[in-house]
């Protein structure tokens, strides 16, 4: 039996009177890839936010390797979480290489003293060979080239790749990917799938969010189906596709990935 990495129990999020997420529990073992699937508004991103600490949970708790996981996002990142965002959060004026570098160097600036020391070290020794090599290796794995371009010049799909690469640079125990395929082309999908496999090989876990079951079914070991803030199914991809819950949730849903891309473009512009 593989080690249990991340356990969430009774996670609930309410905004005023609206319940975005209701009593969701799950557990994730080492080397596992969990697909988090559901239509728009099902609470997928809310769950990712609660796990990563971007928003506080109204109720419920999390443990990572048996240790309680709580507090601001930065503390959870230090404990071993990394995430990407539904709408990529990149520094658009910085180069691709610099954006990738962030993931790797952030943990060296985790405490106040490290931040102060980092300022002095940075002024005296701005570049580190090991960092440059690591960034190049990640870029290679993702199939990104021309790393001195500003991130703002990239397509949405490429920006997602950079985000995934940045998260990978944190060498996380659990990697949360929020809709990484929206806006990606074939090369992007390959690159991201590659990263998922890498993390898996290291014996770490991935949570992969998407509303398209078919896209994630081939990549994941298990699927959790969310609908209107509740977990309605948790099992293997095959069982999920055949399940009555699946029919129920997606019946009459006309949304296609193309809509999502348009939506992203609209919000991004």
């Amino acid at each position: 039996m593989a080690e249990t990495l991340l356990v969430g129990s009774g996670l609930t999020k309410r905004y005023g009177g609206v319940t975005a997420l209701q009593d969701v529990s799950f557990s994730l073992t080492a080397g596992e890839v969990l697909g988090l699937v559901g239509p728009n508004g099902a609470g997928k991103t809310t769950l990712v936010d609660l796990i990563s600490g971007a928003q506080p949970a109204t109720e419920g708790s999390l443990t990572l390797r048996g240790q309680r996981l709580a507090g601001p996002a930065s503390r959870r990142a230090k404990a071993g979480l990394a995430r990407t965002f539904q709408y990529p959060q990149l520094a658009l004026e910085l180069t691709v290489a610099e954006n990738l570098l962030l993931g790797r160097v952030a943990r060296r600036h985790g405490t106040v003293w490290q931040m102060i020391a980092g300022a002095f070290r940075g002024a005296l020794r701005p570049y580190d060979k090991a960092d440059t090599l690591a960034v190049a290796a990640i870029a290679e794995e993702l199939g990104l080239d021309r790393l001195d371009r500003p991130a703002g010049d990239l397509s949405l799909g490429e920006q997602r790749l950079v985000e995934v690469g940045r998260a990978l640079g944190q060498d996380p125990l659990v990697l949360l990917l929020d809709e990484p395929f929206a806006g990606s082309d074939a090369a992007g999908v390959t690159g991201i799938s590659e990263v998922v496999r890498t993390v898996q090989r290291r014996g770490h876990a991935v949570i992969l969010v998407d509303h398209n079951v078919d896209l994630v079914a081939g990549l994941v070991d298990r699927i959790m189906l969310l609908d209107r803030g509740q977990s309605v199914f948790d099992g293997s991809p095959r069982e999920c596709l055949d399940s009555p819950q699946m029919q129920q949730v997606y019946f009459g849903v006309t949304e296609t990935p193309d809509d999502a891309i348009e939506e992203v473009d609209r919000v991004g512009s």
Binding site: A54, A73, S74, A82, N99, G103, G110
Partner: peptide, 15 residues
């Protein structure tokens, strides 16, 4: 410099 445009990413990376 990333804090300027993408503070959430910096926070999520552990700073």
């Amino acid at each position: 410099r990333t804090m300027r445009d993408a503070p959430r990413a910096v926070e999520a990376a552990g700073v």
